[in-house]
């Protein structure tokens, strides 16, 4: 499983690198493209098989974030119906975004920006 995660995760990153180097897309656009692709692939039922195959290799890249969003939407609609459309996405990404927010805030209190060389 570790090898599969390594290879699949690595290949997804290579795809990102190719987009950076070969197109004029900025990193921000590439990330948006990956997340939206994740939602679409998951909605079409194409991403779950990749997750089953490679585990973290399919979930850790930002495409997996899109997969989480789509799954969360499915769950929310099954459970709540119409209001799920409004709450599903945010509920699904709450863990990752919340963690980033919390650790980001703490880090901003503890660390100063680092110059580079």
């Amino acid at each position: 499983m570790l090898i599969k995660a390594f290879v699949v995760g690595g290949l997804i990153c290579v795809a990102g690198q190719l987009l950076i180097d070969l197109t004029k897309l900025t990193p921000a656009r590439i990330l948006v493209t990956f997340v939206v692709s994740g939602v679409v692939l998951s909605a079409l039922g194409l991403w779950q098989p990749v997750v089953d195959f490679a585990g973290a290799g399919a979930l850790v890249p930002i495409v997996g974030f899109g997969h989480t969003l789509a799954q969360g939407m499915e769950r929310a609609i099954a459970k709540e119906g119409l209001t799920g459309i409004f709450s599903g996405g945010f509920t699904a990404c709450a863990g990752g975004v919340g963690a980033s927010l919390i650790f980001g805030f703490i880090t901003s209190l503890l660390a100063r920006p680092n110059s580079q060389s």
């Binding site: 997804i12 990330l31 890249p61 805030f105 880090t107 660390a111």
Partner: peptide, 21 residues
């Protein structure tokens, strides 16, 4: 490059670095 950008750690970096900055 994309090796640190695309994983969720890159997302976290994109939140933490402006918070610090």
């Amino acid at each position: 490059g994309a090796g640190t950008l695309v994983p969720i750690t890159g997302f976290a970096n994109a939140v933490v670095s402006p918070a610090m900055e």
